[in-house]
Amino acid sequence: MRKFMLSAIIVTASLFGLSVQAAEFQAGKEYVELKAPVPVADPSKIEVVELFWYGCPHCYQFEPIINPWVEQLPDDVDFKRIPAMFGGAWNLHGQLFLTLESMNVEQSVHDAVFNAYHNQGNKLETPEKMADLVASNGVDREAFLKAFNSFGVKSRAEQAKKLGMAYQITGVPVMVVNGKYRFDIGSAGGPQRALEVADFLIEKERAAR
Score class of each variant (00 low, 15 high):
Leu163Gln: 12
Pro43Ser: 11
Ala22Met: 07
Phe183Gln: 06
Asn149Arg: 10
Leu18Cys: 12
Val48Asn: 09
Lys45Met: 10
His110Phe: 15
Gly186Arg: 13
Val172Gln: 06
Pro173Ala: 09
Val172Ile: 03
Trp53Asn: 11
Asp111Gly: 02
Ser187Gln: 06
Leu163Ile: 10
Val11Thr: 05
Asp132Met: 02
Lys3Trp: 14
Glu63Gln: 14
Asn178Asp: 15
Lys123Arg: 14
Ile10Leu: 15
Glu158Gly: 14
Pro37His: 02
Val177Ser: 05
Ala13His: 01
Val113Tyr: 11
Val49Ser: 08
Gly164Asp: 04
Met103Trp: 09
Pro83Thr: 06
Ala41Ser: 14
Ser44Gly: 03
Met103Ala: 09
Phe25Asn: 05
Leu96Phe: 13
Trp53Pro: 01
Pro173Cys: 07
Val11Glu: 05
Pro57Thr: 02
Val77Tyr: 13
Gly28Thr: 07
Val40Asp: 10
Gln21Pro: 00
Phe200Ile: 05
Gly87Leu: 01
Thr99Ile: 10
Glu47Ile: 04
Arg193His: 09
Phe144Ile: 00
Lys3Gln: 15
Tyr31Lys: 03
Gly88Phe: 04
Asn149Thr: 01
Ile66His: 09
Asn178Trp: 04
Gly28Tyr: 07
Arg193Asp: 08
Gly152Ala: 15
Gly94Ser: 03
Glu50Ser: 09
Asn104Pro: 00
Phe114His: 10
Leu163Ser: 00
Pro74Met: 09
His110Asn: 09
Val174Arg: 09
Phe86Val: 01
Gly87Trp: 04
Leu124Trp: 11
Glu33Asp: 09
Glu101Tyr: 07
Lys180Gly: 00
Cys56His: 12
Leu98Val: 01
Asp78Phe: 12
Met85Val: 15
Asp42Ala: 11
Gly152Ile: 12
Ala143Trp: 04
Gln168Asn: 15
Asp76Met: 03
Gly179Trp: 07
Pro39Asn: 10
Gly94Tyr: 07
Tyr181Val: 01
Gly152Val: 07
Val197Glu: 04
Gly164Val: 02
Leu96Pro: 02
Pro68Gln: 12
Cys59Asp: 06
Leu133Asn: 11
Tyr31Gly: 05
Phe183Tyr: 10
Leu133Ala: 10
Leu145Thr: 02
Met103Val: 09
Val139Lys: 01
Val77Arg: 10
Asn119Met: 05
Tyr181Asn: 00
Asp42His: 13
Ser150Ile: 09
Glu196Trp: 02
Phe62Asp: 11
Gly87Ala: 00
Val177Ile: 14
His110Cys: 07
Val134His: 10
Asn104Tyr: 07
Ala208Thr: 10
Leu92Met: 13
Tyr181Thr: 03
Lys3Ala: 15
Leu92His: 14
Pro127Gly: 05
Ala207Gly: 01
Glu125Leu: 13
Lys161His: 00
Val20Ala: 08
Asn137Val: 02
Asp184Glu: 14
Gly186Ile: 14
Cys59Glu: 06
Gln107His: 14
Asp184Gln: 08
Thr126Phe: 06
Gly164Asn: 11
Ala27Gly: 08
Lys123Gln: 15
Val139Leu: 03
Glu63Asp: 14
Phe52Asn: 05
Thr126His: 07
Asn149Tyr: 00
Gly179Ile: 08
Pro68Leu: 04
